[in-house]
Computed example of a mutant assay.
Amino acid sequence: MADVERQDTVTIDQYISGMRVRTLALSVAPVWIGTAAGVGIVRERAAASSRCTVLTGGASCVPDTARIAAVAVLCLLVAMLLQIAANFVNDYSDGIRGTDAHRAAGAIAARLDDDLDTPADRMEVPPARLVVSGVPPRHVLAAAVVNAALACTCGLAVVVITGYWWLIVVGALCLAAGWYYVGGRRPYGYMGFGEVAVFVFFGLVATLGTTYAIAGALDAAAWVGAAAIGVVAVAVLCVNNLRDIDTDRAAGKRTWAVRMGRTWGTVCTIALIAIVSLGAAVAWAATSVQGERLAHLSVLTAFLGILGAVCALLTGWFAALDIAKRNYMRAMRSLGLLALATALTFNGFALMI
């Protein structure tokens, strides 16, 4: 491949491309679920005790709309900014390692292909990688550092509001996970642990961290929601790795897709989607059967839950079909919608019990 002309700065379009906006639903959904679970715990605590003080260990015992809203928004900003920072770090690290060289060649060739006549066709082209597209690596790294710094600022605000200073340790672990995924001398993403890390940080940490910041406690519903959205996040990464399976194999990046091969990797990814879709269907059925005995059942919550379950089933179905057909970019868009549908399902159903 011919050398790419180097640039002096990052353009706005390139910055937005590096953010990977279409995947940010993976940050929105766990915070949404965590917020809903936290509000549910606060509500039950207030109903169970009439002698509860306003603040206990930094968490409200009675609903405090302003505090809850502030913590939820700050948690959302932390999650989104950390994900954006991680995306820039991945671009930077893979770029300087040479992992993205073949991906860039394919993307450039696709964009120059005259057969891509429609917007839908061009949306199937993977996003351009910044470093190998000519953006100086130091600018990509700087973008990652700025977003990480903003995330830390928002995280410190959460700590000040809640009083849970140990959340700083959790934040430090998130920063380390984002850097060492493909950065450092021995990146764990190259050893096949990226999928596990995605489940932990995009599922458990983001969801349960939000719930605890709001309510100062966790319950079974929060754990179920965290696991569900974590599975969706793993499915998104698996689709991304199926798309890049050939270049990852050539670069020595041993993802699940590379280890299992395209066929079994596809089967595993579709199975993950089926688990989440089945969970939405079970929640729908269980609520329909026990509806009269659910204390917090209302027309609105039932409607939201049913709408979320239907959307989860549909988006999961379309994502599975696209994965089977190797339309990976379209599948990733469907999985982003599946993440939001999962959160809507949780918001509608899980909190009525």
Rank of each mutant, 00 (worst) to 15 (best):
V131A: 03
T118E: 09
C154S: 15
G155S: 13
A143F: 01
P137F: 12
R138S: 07
D121Q: 14
L141P: 04
A149C: 13
A149Y: 09
A128S: 07
A151M: 10
V146N: 03
A151D: 11
H139G: 02
A143L: 13
A120N: 06
A143W: 03
T153V: 15
C152Y: 12
D121N: 10
V146E: 05
A151V: 05
T153K: 00
E124F: 06
C152R: 00
A142K: 00
P119R: 14
V145A: 15
C154W: 13
R129M: 09
A142M: 08
V131I: 11
A142G: 04
V132C: 12
N147T: 11
D121T: 02
V146K: 03
H139L: 11
A143T: 02
L156E: 14
A120F: 10
C152K: 00
P136E: 01
T153P: 01
C154P: 07
S133E: 10
V125K: 05
D121C: 06
A120T: 09
L156D: 07
D121K: 14
R138C: 00
V132M: 12
P137Q: 08
L156I: 15
A142R: 07
A148G: 15
G134A: 11
A143M: 10
A120G: 05
P126F: 05
A148H: 06
G155H: 13
V132D: 13
A148Y: 08
R129S: 04
V125A: 10
